[in-house]
């Protein structure tokens, strides 16, 4: 029981905080909303630069070892990659719809859309699992050569972001059932959505660079 309480306190630290934390905000909702969005965009900027290191490594090593990259790229499964691209863009669309729906107080629609998003993300993950395990069973892994190192590092870090995004959207979905969001209060859904779109954006670049341009 103690352990459960502890784990719960990690997820919702505020529940075990002194009352001062539960203080209502010092700022008006309008400021709070626009501030949260600006903060999220700044965070997206850092995410972009985090992937920036990988893109830079890609650009440099691709120019250095064009043949290795062409061969490696030709060995990747374009069909699986394309399917994943379609799935991810679709999930981006559902999130965008959810953000609009909450502003019209259509909670049901929000929930449906978030469920679809989560399912898409899960399918994306399952596809990736098959892709990875197929490669690994053929003796290809990170460290095989620079191309596969980039492939595993970039898609791996991206996959990590998919999981984080799933966790964020999952918590939001749970909270829609608790009635925490409404037409007046939807900041969390909007910034959670922004994060998910970033995951999509990164993939939009990774897909052609890794799978197609050989």
């Amino acid at each position: 029981m103690q352990i459960m309480k502890f784990i719960k306190s990690l997820a919702y630290p505020s529940e075990m905080l002194p009352p001062i934390v539960e203080e209502e905000s010092h700022f008006d909702p309008e400021t709070e909303h626009s501030a949260a969005k600006l903060g999220m965009w700044l965070f997206l900027a850092t995410e972009l630069l985090l992937f920036g290191g990988l893109f830079a490594a890609y650009a440099i090593f691709r120019a250095k070892y064009p043949v290795m990259f062409a061969e490696g790229s030709a060995n990747l499964d374009v069909v699986l990659g394309s399917v994943n691209t379609v799935i991810l863009i679709f999930s981006s669309w559902t999130v965008a719809v959810a953000v609009t729906a909450i502003q019209e107080n259509k909670i049901k629609l929000v929930q449906v859309m978030l469920w679809i998003t989560l399912i898409c993300a899960a399918i994306f993950g399952i596809n990736k699992y098959f892709e990875y395990s197929y490669k690994l069973s053929n003796g290809i892994g990170p460290g095989t050569d620079i191309f596969y190192s980039i492939y595993f590092a970039a898609t791996g870090v991206h996959m990590l972001h998919v999981f984080i995004g799933m966790a964020v959207l999952g918590v939001i979905l749970k909270r829609t059932y608790e009635g925490r969001y409404s037409k007046e209060k939807f900041t969390a859904i909007e910034i959670g959505g922004l994060y998910w779109h970033l995951v999509d954006l990164i993939w939009i670049y990774l897909f052609p660079l890794l799978y197609l341009v050989g």
Binding site: G52, L54, A57, P142, V157
Partner: peptide
Amino acid sequence: ITLLLLIGERYFGLGF
């Protein structure tokens, strides 16, 4: 990301 890749170098031998 650089330090993450360094960890990857040590774990997986990424080689960058």
